[in-house]
């Protein structure tokens, strides 16, 4: 009697479980469909850009499809050559010359500034940190003109210096603030252990703090890289000779100088321009995810 009841219960439970599983599968399918649709809508311009860069100039405006009917590399070849005496490679090199010192300088200077704010007491610390926040809230345009005059007096116009030197001295308040917040969330015990182990402040910073800070530092570098790559206004203000243009300006150049715009060239170069950013982003994505959760403190 009891056994039969049990079996009935089992059958009932099984039916219920099966129904629940079906429901779950259905809802998952719906959710994925939704995500896929929205994702496609957001990504379509990018996909179209890549497709269109292989089209002929005439085909670009003939439809919204992204698969080229007569694929051609013309856009890339002509675009690379540019309408200037330099190839597009020159402009990439210029971008690189700005980005490299800027990213390295940002990483080093912001780490040191953040370490000082988060872990040391020094006179005027409150005032200085408040000014960091104030700079954070200040719109960029406000400082453009004074900065321009400063760099003009230094004789730095038409050079890369104005584009990276401020950042190399922790000029980007946002990054300093971000690292300070991250550091404050890390326990100070490891640093104290290092000091007991005989490390001085600099050794503690290099051997203990920086490795723990790595996930945040990678984000900082990534942001700085992308923002610099995309920065249009800075180079436009400070650089006047074409040979020093970074890619962001060079792209615009190909629109200005030709009368009938060669859209396929522009699109092809645009694809090239965003490639480094995409590659680096996907390469570093792993660190975003794994990095932050790795803590040494168990409680």
């Amino acid at each position: 009697m009891d056994i039969h009841a049990d079996m009935d219960m089992d059958g009932f439970n099984e039916a219920r479980a099966a129904r629940r599983a079906r429901l779950r599968a259905l809802s998952a399918a719906l959710r994925y469909l939704m995500l896929f649709t929205v994702g496609l809508v957001m990504l379509y311009p990018l996909i179209w850009l890549v497709g269109a860069s292989f089209k002929t100039n005439a085909e670009i405006f003939s439809g919204a499809g992204f698969i080229p009917r007569h694929p051609t590399l013309d856009g890339y070849i002509e675009g690379w050559r540019t309408s200037t005496p330099y190839t597009f490679g020159r402009f990439f090199w210029n971008s690189f010359l700005i980005i490299l010192p800027k990213v390295i300088g940002t990483a080093i200077s912001c780490t040191m500034a953040a370490y000082a704010f988060a872990r040391f007491d020094f006179p005027l610390k409150k005032v200085l940190f408040t000014s960091v926040i104030a700079i954070l809230l200040l719109p960029n345009v406000v400082t453009r003109i004074p900065q321009y005059m400063l760099f003009r007096d230094l004789g730095w116009l038409d050079s890369f210096l104005p584009l990276w030197v401020p950042s190399a001295f922790a000029g980007d308040a946002f990054f300093v603030f971000m690292l300070v917040q991250f550091l404050r969330s890390l326990p100070a015990d490891m640093e104290e252990a290092a000091r007991v182990d005989g490390a001085n402040s600099l050794q503690t910073l290099v051997y203990i703090v920086v490795p723990m800070l790595a996930p945040a530092l990678i984000s900082v570098c990534l942001f700085q890289f992308m923002w610099t790559m995309n920065d249009f206004l800075g180079p436009l203000i400070y650089l006047s000779s074409v040979e020093k243009y970074p890619v962001s300006l060079a792209l615009k150049l190909s629109i200005d100088t030709t009368e009938a715009f060669e859209w396929n060239r522009i699109l092809a170069m645009s694809v090239l321009t965003i490639t480094p950013a995409l590659v680096i982003f996907f390469a570093a994505q792993r660190y975003f995810i794994e990095g932050i959760s790795a803590g040494g403190v168990k409680g």
Binding site: P187, D189, M190, E192, A193, A194, Y207, I208, P211, M212, A214, A294, G295, G296, V297, K298, G299
Partner: peptide
Amino acid sequence: QNYALYPH
């Protein structure tokens, strides 16, 4: 108390 081993 919480060991403070260097996590990396």
